[in-house]
Design a protein around this nucleic acid. Sequence first.
DNA 1: TTACAGTATAGGAACGTTCCTATTAGTGAA
DNA 2: TTCACTAATAGGAACGTTCCTATACTGTAA
Lengths: 357, 357
Amino acid sequence: MSKRQSVTIRDVAQKAGVGLNTVSLTLKDSDLVRSETKSKVKAAIEELGYVPNVSARNLRRGTVRTIGVMIPDIHNFHYWDIVAGVEDEARHHDYGIVLSNTNLNPQLELDSLRGLLERRYDGLILMATHTHSKETPTEVRKLLDQGSAIVTIGSTWREVDKIEPYPLEAGPLLMQHLYNLGHRRIGFVLGVAHQDLASGRLEAYCEFTARHNLPQRIEYCGPTIPDGMAATHRLLDDPARPTAIVTVNDYLAVAAMRTIALRGLCIPADISLAGFDNIPLSQYLTPALTTVDVGGPNRGREAVRLLLERLKDPKRPTQIVKIPASLHVRESTGPPPAAFDSRMQPEVPDPKNCNSF
Amino acid sequence: MSKRQSVTIRDVAQKAGVGLNTVSLTLKDSDLVRSETKSKVKAAIEELGYVPNVSARNLRRGTVRTIGVMIPDIHNFHYWDIVAGVEDEARHHDYGIVLSNTNLNPQLELDSLRGLLERRYDGLILMATHTHSKETPTEVRKLLDQGSAIVTIGSTWREVDKIEPYPLEAGPLLMQHLYNLGHRRIGFVLGVAHQDLASGRLEAYCEFTARHNLPQRIEYCGPTIPDGMAATHRLLDDPARPTAIVTVNDYLAVAAMRTIALRGLCIPADISLAGFDNIPLSQYLTPALTTVDVGGPNRGREAVRLLLERLKDPKRPTQIVKIPASLHVRESTGPPPAAFDSRMQPEVPDPKNCNSF
DNA sequence: TTACAGTATAGGAACGTTCCTATTAGTGAA
DNA sequence: TTCACTAATAGGAACGTTCCTATACTGTAA
C-alpha cells in the first residue's frame, strides 16, 4: 500500500460531479442531501472503492473515537474479563480500544497517560496503577483539570469517575461464610504488585477478624502464580495452620489450589479456599472455587458508559457507579476438619485419599 | 479538554523564536539543528507543555505506527499469550496495538479488515477467521494485492506471511507419547468455531491413528468450556471408553479435566489427558497438564517482526516463520489402567478414592 | 569585491477530511 | 419584475503536522 491514498473524497466528488461537501454529507447520511444525489455519490464511492481516511477525519474532528485501556497485568484473567466488557460496549458506540499493558511499570503508565495528551485516544480507562493512595496522583490530577476523560476501576482516588463494587462488604460476606462454616483460623494471601492495591479486600479481612477476635494471618506476595504458591506454602507451614485460605483474587487461588494439592491436602476436607473476582475459570476448576463476583464484564461496560458521558459533558460532577457484588459458594469451601488439632496434624497425609496422582 | 489543541508546534516556534521546521526537526532529534537551538526549542516545549498531535502526524506521514490484532476468542487463554508477545514486541518498535475481538463473527472480521483500508493501523495480525481453507479469502487477497501488510498465525492460507509451529509433527509427538504409554483408544475433542480451524492438529491425530491402526474417536464441538464438557461426556459415555483424551487446545482440556472429575474418574489413573498450546495455566492445574508448547508469546513477537519487515519492503516474497513446538510431559498422562476391560468398567467409581469432594 | 560552497533555519505546500460560508436555483409574494 | 426566502450544493479554510524548497548566513578562495 502506497504512502499516498489512492482515492480520496475529491476523486469521489469529481466522479459523481458534485462538491466535496456533498460527499462528506452523504457519508454521514445527512438529510441535507437529496436522496437522488446521495445514490449518485454512493455509486461513485462503490465504483472507486473509496474508504475514508481516519487520520484525516480525526485531525479535523479533533476526536479519535478510541478508548485507551490500561491493564496492570495481562496474565490475570480478571482483567480480560473487564476488557471483554469494555470491548463489547465500545463497539456498540462505534469506539475502538487501544490496549496498554503496563505491568505496573511507572514509566509505561506515564506513557499511557501521555497518549491522552497526544490525542491517541479520547479517554482512558485505568484499572490499577503503581501509585495507590486516597489522593489522586498529580499527573492524573493535572489531566483531569485539563478536562481529560479518565475512568478508574477499583481505585480509591478522590474526584475521579469510578467503578466500585457494591457493597464493599462483599468481602465481609465471604468472611462471614467461612465463619459460619466454623472456620476460626483464616489465612489471607495478598498477592498484588503494590501493597495498597487491594486495600478494600484487605480491610474487609482485617475488619472481620478484628471484630470476631480471630487471629490475623496475612501473607504478602507478588502477583504471579509462583509468588502465590510460595505464600501459600508459608501459610501451610505455620504450626497453627489455617483451616481456610482466602486469596486476594481468583488468579492466585489457582496458585493456592495447586500448592495445597502438592502438599497432599484436600480441599475442602482439610482446608477451605476462596477467592475474589469470579473469573470464568473458577467454576470449572476442581474443586469449583467459592468466590466473590464483582461483575467482571459489567465493570468494563459501565466504565465505557461513564467515559462516554464524561466526554459528552466534561463539566459534570464526578460519578461513582456501584456494581453489585455477590458471593458464589461452590465446592472449595466446607466445614473445617472436625477433629482438627493444630498440634496433631498429620505431617504427610496419604495422597491416595485425595489427589489423584 | 477542548476540541482545539491548546498549544501547537506554531506556538512553540514562536516562543522559541524559530521556524516550524526547526521545531519539527528538534522533535526527532535531527542533527541538522544546532544543539544550542535545540535546547532553546526544548525549553519552549517544556514551558508551554507542548505535546505533538498524533492524528496530524499520522495524516502527514501516511502511517499510524499501530498494529491491529484480530482475536477470534477473547476467552481462550492462548490468544492472550500471543497478544502479550505482540504487545511487548510492538512496544519495543514504538508501535501501538489495537485489539479487535471478533468472536469469529464474519461481519466483525470484515470490519477488522476495513481498518486497514481506513488506515487505522498499518498492518494486521490475524489469528484465525471464520473463513478457513487453503485458499486465501478474496477480501484478504484483495488487500494483499493492494500491498496491505497482513500476518497470520496458524492459518493455512497460501501466499501470506505466517507463523507456523515446527515441526507440524508436534502433534504426532504427543500421539506417540500416549502410544508409548500403552494407550490404544485415544479420543479427540475438537472444539473450534469452525471445523477446519485446527486442521493441523486433527490431521496429526488422524494420520497417527490410521498408521497405527487405532480406532478414531473424534468429538466435534464448539469453542466454549460447556461445549468441551459436553463433548467429553460423550466420549466418556462410549462403551469403549478411550483410555486417553486429547483436546484441541489446553483451554478445552480444562473442560475435559472438569468433566472427568465430575464423573468421578482419576487423571491419569483412569484416563490420561493432554492438550495443545501450553498455556501458562496448564502447569498449575492439578494434575498438571501434558501439552504441546507452540511458543505462545513467541508467536506474537515473530508476527510483529514479520509485519514490520513487510511494511519496510512490501515487495518481498512471503515468508513463513517456524516456531519450534515441543512436548511437555506432566502429570495428566500415564499408562492406561492395567486391567482395563471396556465391558467391565465400573459404572460409578467411588469418588473417595480420587477426587476430594 | 565577488563568487561559491556549505550549513542552519525559515516558510509554505501538502496530507484528506469536516465545517463554515457562500452561491445558485427554485418558489411564492409584493 | 423585484425581492425575500428556502433548499441544495459548491468551494474554500482549517485541523497540526511533516517535508520540500528557498533563503540567509558564514567562511574561504579568486
